[in-house]
């Protein structure tokens, strides 16, 4: 092997090694977090943890059923508000957003995407909690939906743009009006990607705490009334982890593990949907 070839070979090896080490470091962070949670939280997870509401401080036992159900309701409601608006905005941006209005919408979405979530929480407090004179799960859902909409709009736009132009033309040439082409052909074809985007968005907001602090507030009792304060896993972790009781810390770890598991399940589902999608098209 000549000197130059050898040098190239060594450089290639060195770069590969660097990349492998860096990738491993990135994955290591996730593994450490997950490992720590399992170590400290798994032992506290039993049937009561999922089925019982919290008991008064100082007593042992009890669970976080109220927080699990609360997270489900708050996030579900947020998705109900956010998904239609976000997806519709994304479809608009991709199909009709070449003009000035498209530019403005895209710009606002980008700014909103970068807005700290606690600011969104304050906005929801100002416009919903204060006028209605009460904290509520609904206010929390609105705050989460606001976080979700720009994310969904941009991912939907990307996914719709990936649909080959030839499919649009095929539909137009069959006599499809433009709006029907957008809905029946383009959006349907991009559906897998759009669903993935929604799931990733839901996974992201499921773990949010800051926007819920001044909106859903938290609730130590079991409640499914969306006009009243409601507990969520993230709020539960916040309260328990900063509280003085050993029992609370234990439950905080367990709650963190459950929340992490939930987010992981949603993310894996998103992956699966993506795989299905690429399996079907070409």
């Amino acid at each position: 092997m000549s000197g130059r070839a050898l040098r190239r070979h060594l450089a290639s090896r060195a770069m590969t090694a660097v990349v492998v080490v860096l990738s491993f470091t990135a994955v290591l962070a996730l593994l450490l977090i997950l490992g720590d949670l399992v170590l400290k939280g798994a032992s506290s997870i039993d049937w009561a943890f999922f089925t019982k509401s919290p008991v008064p401080a100082g007593q042992s036992g009890g669970g976080v059923a109220n927080a699990i159900v609360g997270t489900g309701i708050i996030v579900g409601l947020a998705a109900l508000i956010g998904v239609p608006i976000g997806v519709a905005a994304g479809l608009y941006l991709a199909e009709y957003g070449s003009g000035r209005l498209g530019f403005v919408v895209r710009f606002i979405a980008d700014v909103l995407n970068g807005t700290p979530s606690i600011v969104v929480g304050i906005v929801a407090w100002t416009f919903i909690v204060r006028p209605t004179h009460g904290y509520s799960a609904l206010a929390g859902s609105v705050a989460l939906a606001i976080l979700m909409i720009p994310m969904l709009a941009r991912t939907t736009e990307e996914m719709v743009r990936l649909v080959p132009h030839s499919l649009r033309e095929a539909a137009l040439a069959l006599g499809y009006p433009r709006w029907r082409t957008s809905l029946k052909i383009v959006a349907r074809t991009a559906l897998g990607g759009i669903v993935t985007g929604c799931l990733v968005g839901i996974a992201r907001i499921a773990g949010e705490t800051a926007p819920l602090l001044f909106t859903a507030l938290g609730n130590l009792n079991f409640s499914v009334d969306i006009t009243q304060p409601m507990q969520s896993l993230s709020l539960q972790i916040y309260v328990y982890a900063t509280g003085p009781f050993e029992e609370w810390h234990r439950l905080a770890w367990a709650s963190a593990l459950v929340l992490m598991g939930l987010v992981l399940i949603i993310s894996i589902t998103a992956r699966w949907v993506t795989r299905q999608r690429y399996g079907r098209i070409r």
Binding site: S166, L167, A170, A171, A173, L174, G175, P177, T189
Partner: peptide, 29 residues
């Protein structure tokens, strides 16, 4: 334009079937 394109069919350079069943592809029009 819609009825014009119904009277004038078009086939493109690259095959571009919709990501749907064979039946649905033909039934679309």
């Amino acid at each position: 334009v819609v009825s014009l394109r119904r009277r004038i069919g078009m086939v493109f350079q690259r095959p571009n079937p919709f990501p749907k069943s064979v039946y649905d592809n033909v039934a679309y029009g």
